[in-house]
Design a protein around this nucleic acid. Structure first.
Lengths: 121, 121
DNA sequence: CTGGATCCTCATAGATACTG
DNA sequence: CAGTATCTATGAGGATCCAG
């Protein structure tokens, strides 16, 4: 079997690109608490710029993972919330966190060993 | 709760950065078949440059996900194989593929709808 | 054969300032 | 408030050459 990095139609690749994105997963996790306003997300997700937040939200919205609701008010108010599809993604994120917690020590130990070849040999 | 993109000590973030990497997951999947030579990997993974392949392999090796065996032969021969830790990652990749297969149609439909706002409204 | 070293370029993250 | 417009710099990644 051969694999192609250009197999863009590969489902896994598409999902991987989305969750591999720095901000997407953070936004999804934030929205797990319930609907949030743009400014709330901006505040809670430390280090994100307006540009990246908007870009991330648009991407998630396009993929049908989150919904966007504009309230006709002054001042403007926009709420974002997880769709059913988005919530299903939480299971995957959960599995990822679980694996990470279970194995992170092994990984870090391996890194330490790799970076300090001389020690304890 | 606040999240920080700079929470580099967050296990999930570290794992995400690794599997979000374009080539890492492909290499891991390739190695699921058994030990492989550098040149075999280079051939099977379409589009990867020697530099990126080496870089990816080093990263995976550093994280303890793959093992590297140099055979004292001429011509040189180097085998890569999954470690136990690496194989455990296959479960996670499997979960990801499963989610992707189950929901990719919804995602693609959402994208189509997003990209063609006028249609069927 | 394996892969290190170097150079280059193109994409994009991020900061900042501005607007409906 | 919720973004958009613009700019810059960083760095991921490709191509190439070379060495053990």
């Amino acid at each position: 079997m051969e694999v192609s990095a250009y197999a863009k139609d590969c489902p896994s690749r598409q999902i991987l690109d989305r969750i591999g994105d720095t901000w997407s997963v953070l936004v999804v996790i934030m929205l797990a608490d319930g609907p949030q306003r743009y400014s709330a997300l901006a505040k809670r997700i430390e280090g994100v710029s307006p540009k990246m937040l908007t870009q991330t939200l648009r991407g998630l919205e396009r993929d049908g993972l989150i919904g966007r609701t504009v309230h006709a008010e002054v001042p403007p108010r926009v709420d974002y919330e997880l769709t059913e599809l988005g919530r299903s993604l939480l299971d995957l994120v959960g599995a990822l966190e679980k694996w990470a917690e279970m194995h992170i020590e092994d990984v870090q130990a391996a890194r330490a060993a790799y970076d300090n070849p001389g020690v304890k040999v």
